[in-house]
Amino acid sequence: MTLLTGHGFWNPLLWLAAAAGVTLLALVVWSRGRRDYTRGTDRELPFLSGEKMEGAHVGGGHLYWGFVEGLRPYVERLRALHSGLVNDYVGWLVVILAVAFLIVLVGG
């Protein structure tokens, strides 16, 4: 059952056992928490920037705003490369071919 991976090993059943132990621990901790949560009150509503909103949904586009914003220069450059122009697609093929030619003819 143990998969040797060069440096180490991987056994999903051992991992599951460990995960079950951790889950049990978490449940124990959770069960000792406060009990005054009640359904049907304000507590169920999503809370966005201090505003109470009915039917509010944090869409996929809103996640990682800061992350994407930080990476924007790189991402924008990458997006610009995906120009959707079929000539560019072929151009990249030619570039990779050129690299491969250089490697096999000069580097090898």
Binding site: S83, G91, W92, V94, V95, L97, A98, L105
Partner: peptide, 20 residues
């Protein structure tokens, strides 16, 4: 994509194919 990149790559490919 830069025109010059493509041109350079094209020149290399052309040279290699003609060499072949």
């Amino acid at each position: 994509m830069r025109r010059w990149t493509v041109l350079a790559a094209f020149v290399i490919v052309a040279g290699s194919l003609l060499l072949g």
